[in-house]
Nucleic acid binder design. Sequence first.
RNA 1: GGGGGCGUAGCCCAAUCGGCAGAGGCAACGGUCUCAAACACCGUCCAGUGUGGGUUCGACUCCCACCGCCCCUACCA
Length: 837
Amino acid sequence: MSDLYDFRTTEAKWQASWNETGLFRAPADPDPSRKFYALEMFAYPSGDIHIGHFRNYGIGDAAVRRLLMQGKDVLHPFGWDAFGLPAENAAIQRDIHPREWTLGNIATGRSTLQAVGLGYDWEREFATCNPDYYHFTQWIFVLLYERGLVYRKNAPVNWCVGCATVLANEQVQDGQCWRCKSVVEKRDLEQWYIRITEYAQRLVDGLDTLPKWPKSTLASQRNWIGRSEGAAITFGVESPAEGCPSELEVFTTRPDTLWGVTFLALSPESDAGRWCAGHGSNATDVAAYAKAAALKTEIERSAANREKTGVDSGLRAVHPCTGETVPVLVADYVLASYGTGYVMGVPAHDERDFQFAKAHDLGIAVVIQNKSGSLDVATMEGAYTESGVMTASGPFDGRPSADAIPQPQVIAWLEEQGTGSGRVTFRLRDWLISRQRYWGCPIPMVHCAACGVVPVPQDQLPVTLPPDVESWIPKGRSPLADVAEFVATTCPKCGGAAERDVDTMDTFIDSSWYHLRYTDAHNGDLPFDPVAAAKWLPVDLYIGGAEHANGHLIYFRFITKVLKDAGFLDVEEPVVRLFHHGMVQDGDGRTMSKSLGNVISPIHLAREFGIDAARLAMFFFAPSREEIRWNEDGAAAARKLVTRLHATFVANRDVIAAFPADVRGDSSGSDEAREARRRAHIMLQRFDDAFDGDLALNPGVAAIYELLNVFPNAEKVAASSEADRRCYAEALRVLALTMAPVAPHLAEEVHEMLGGEGSVFRTSWPAVDPEALVLDTVEIAVQVRGKVKARITVAADADEASVRETALADPAVVAAIGEQPVRRVIVVPGRLVNVVV
RNA sequence: GGGGGCGUAGCCCAAUCGGCAGAGGCAACGGUCUCAAACACCGUCCAGUGUGGGUUCGACUCCCACCGCCCCUACCA
């Protein structure tokens, strides 16, 4: 073996070895006490694997390698989130079939990941666009249907003009399509929905059982699900016309402000709003208003502080407590999809209602008085939304509204009166999953003239995507609608002629169950064998970007719960510990993207610096959770570190080889030798803390530098005493193992050089020796009034009294105290002494 | 508007239970090596922790207010 380290050949050599020996192949029958399921979010096969993937997967890879050394039975799989729009866009732009484009990208991506030495069980790999996989995406859809969680509804939906498809709420960002940035409009369409709101409460409750999830993500999900407690209150409609709703039920979180209602407002898309537009006494105006509202884009409609428009609905409502009539308006600041679509207007105590009332000359009534009693309709410039004392509120006059909001007494009273009741509402909407696109999972439903909507029985799945369509160009309906042989089918129920549903599913459904498929990736009968899933679930560590907090990570929790209810799983939550890695930016702090042309491939890193150096650089730049700027100088420094590490082992090879692998130094070594040993254990301790904690590997890598910096040159080591050489040998042995997760190829090479058998990842992870960490003597600071005045050297285990005595005897301390009386002496063992005068 | 996070040397970042602000790297500078340069090696330099208060013997760390930056969310009644 050459004494010069050639990272290119060495790295290739060990990658081949890992493949041959199946190092990362998960055991078929993991020991329950040792199983560990490590997962990184799978990749969209967009083309090249970039440096951001390399970081994400590198963190997981390092964690997994240490787990192997700890003797865990590890499942660490990889796959491809392979359906989705970019494939179709490529098809349109380059006249290449989406499948071909996708499969080509997968092949490139896989070979890149393998070339950079990431350790996965490739035998469990799959792509969601493969019928072997989407067969069971459909199977799960049918299961959801059978469990009453799928329904069809005509409702206003987000319509992306550019993609010519509907979008889910979280796919609309700032009123634009998340993919193509086109304007998003509202359209009325009949679409498939999944009743995720049925699980809203469980999705909220589950958050309390996830202590190892980032606080930010828990908070984000809590806000997204948006549980609100309040009351549903029924207002009568004054002399309702034929067909007109006779009652309007509103939802409010402030039932204590009920007596302050001066109007009701209806969403133009609500049932009553639509009735008013068609049949009400002011139908012409309402219809015109509703039409204008629908044409507004999401951007216009959601612009902050937009003027609150509205129009008289033609109805009058009867206040359930006072019997007075109040005007009812149609206003597009009211959302049809939240609460009931009708709100009670309390201008004095709600900012939006205040603005609306001012703009439309509606009455304002103060019913919650502030502490000083100064609220007066004539002088109010905004709503008073705090709590206070209820006034002009019938039986509740004089009651504080502060006890609890919503007021339980008010709700109880409403229930007594029969005009309202307590109600919990969620912000979370049902999951709209229809997409008018080709490259997705077909919805396994059949429309039969005689039987209505009929699911394709599970034993007749999959409904395969037709191999070709006439045109990829979106025209506002699914390209599948034009494939006659796909559409024409027979009804599974009556056998008569029927038509297939032509839409495909949102790709978030593909990724909602992929973690389960890995446990049994080749099952042809079921999505997975419940026995196999039980062996591995829950995922012990899940690594991915924080941007999925409200999309994927909610759907994924939801589907896990449904499958548990259906008896296929025994876990309520899919993931024990969630970790969000930081992004990788270019040297100027810009996000790497194809359009900016600043994307760096890990292949480039492998060639220029070596994979181990690139990993070390990445781990060293910043804690894993923080974003980093890629920096070639830093990578070059890491390359030097690899060279230096290798050279250190080569130079000290004979010293190490003279002792058994489990050599231990002890206190008979010199200070210098024991310091080397101590540094090695500090390093180990830091890696342990990181891997067991927040995955911040930077202090650990820094500790490698620290160890090398105190390590004497080889001549000196060779010439030292036997006791010293034992310390040095131990330090390097600890280093050789501890660096393995972060610099795996180098570690294998060193392991082999030191005479190790097999892979270093089949040896065991070292244990910190607490005895190696302690120092004989420590220098501690002596402070007088908090200012350091002297430093004294004492035995590390010196008792407080003697430390105090030594400190007080120090001339500099004596001088600093002078004539002042000593009031207290604080001794922090091993740290400092503070004299209070 | 709501929520989450972050401010430490020129730059990236450490700092255990509240206990001496500096471990490490980059850059810069000086030196050794070299015909010279690069590489390598040795060494040097640099902040008082965004601001203002508070608690404490002692605050980067805890509390309050403010400033700046990043991310998420947003007419949710």
